[in-house]
């Protein structure tokens, strides 16, 4: 008799492919977003079945929380703020403005290059074999942490992780270059349900985000997962206008954006100045340094994601002022 778990796996895999096709082909933009969120949810389950709980945790935090809200905000912006999609066509079949052929072509070329790169990487990898498991397991006692994934991300391959943090920083710099301004729209009336939800969910979310950061040293978790969960706190505060970004808060925000990258790079430089290779942490301080980097990166990720969700640099607009240039 076949293991029923195999049936579950096959059904899950088929459902993910079907959802991907559906999300790309459905006409209604709102349905597209919902399908994409469900796609992320099933992907997280697939990562679990592949015994990769770290990736599942990241997918759950980013897919279930941040991405859905980000896409909803984008759709809202297109419909009601920038008016790109027209006010009249709300929630029906939305007529899409035709995309210039050059943009489509450029997108196709970039996607093709990424696919090509993945194919090259896949074909170049050894077809079978133990992979790097043995190497990592052997080096773990020198990493300062007990969880192999954290050991690889923050110690053995810390350079890659630094680059990922820089990507987020670059994204928020680009967004703040493109759009500026403050909104004086009134707070949405959400009533008692929201109040009750906020009282229960916000403290719990803060605790869970911090817990994920801390537990990353010995179990699945870490800076990206914790940061994404904490970003959800920022999202909720922004959505309900419990916090409205002010021009005077830009300095603090900028500091938070750079904090992760800065501390990460600084630790690398200090380690390198002691006659070692950058990121070759001295063993007796390894855990402290890793936790320091992870803590700062978590703050950066949470603030950056929330700022990306808000989408505008809060600058007081003066009519015809220099901000218009």
């Amino acid at each position: 008799m076949t293991d029923p778990l195999v049936i579950f796996d096959v059904a899950l895999a088929l459902a993910i492919v079907a959802l991907a096709v559906a999300a790309l082909s459905v006409r209604d933009l709102f349905a597209m977003i919902v399908l994409f969120v469900v796609f992320g949810l099933l992907s997280a389950l697939a990562w679990v079945r592949l015994s990769a709980p770290d990736v599942a945790l990241a997918e759950a935090a980013i897919g279930a929380g941040v991405t859905g809200a980000l896409l909803l905000k984008t759709l809202h912006h297109l419909r009601y703020v920038s008016g790109t999609l027209g006010q009249q066509a709300a929630y029906g079949v939305t007529p899409l403005t035709p995309v210039p052929i050059g943009v489509t072509l450029a997108n196709a070329i970039f996607c093709g290059l990424i696919t090509l790169g993945l194919a090259v990487a896949y074909l170049g990898a050894p077809a079978a074999g133990p992979g790097f498991d043995a190497l990592v397991a052997e080096a773990m006692p020198r990493s300062g942490v007990d969880h192999p994934v954290t050991g690889v991300l923050l110690n053995f391959r810390a350079y890659d992780t630094l680059m990922e943090v820089v990507v987020l920083l670059a994204a928020v710099v680009a967004v703040w270059q493109i759009e500026r301004g403050v909104s004086d729209a009134p707070a949405p009336v959400l009533g008692e349900v929201w109040q009750g939800f906020a009282r229960l969910a916000l403290p719990a979310t803060v605790v869970v985000g911090t817990y994920l950061l801390w537990v990353g040293a010995e179990a699945p978790g870490g800076a990206f997962q914790g940061g994404a969960v904490l970003a959800a706190v920022g999202l909720l505060l922004l959505l309900t206008r419990a916090y409205v970004p002010q021009p005077t808060h830009r300095g603090i925000a900028r500091g938070a954006f750079v904090l992760g990258t800065g501390v990460f790079a600084l630790v690398a430089l200090l380690v390198a100045s002691g006659g070692r290779v950058a990121f070759e942490y001295p063993l007796e301080h390894a855990k402290t340094l890793i936790l320091l980097i992870e803590g700062m990166v978590t703050i950066s990720i949470a603030v950056t994601l929330a700022a990306l969700f808000h989408g505008r640099e809060p600058v007081a607009q003066t009519k015809g002022g220099r901000d218009d240039t």
Partner: peptide
């Protein structure tokens, strides 16, 4: 560790919903 994943799902699913209601 999957219990943590479940906890994150349970907490964050509502964020999309709040986003939907507000937006």
């Amino acid at each position: 560790a999957l219990l943590d994943v479940a906890m994150v799902f349970a907490l964050l699913a509502a964020v999309t919903l709040v986003g939907f209601v507000v937006l």
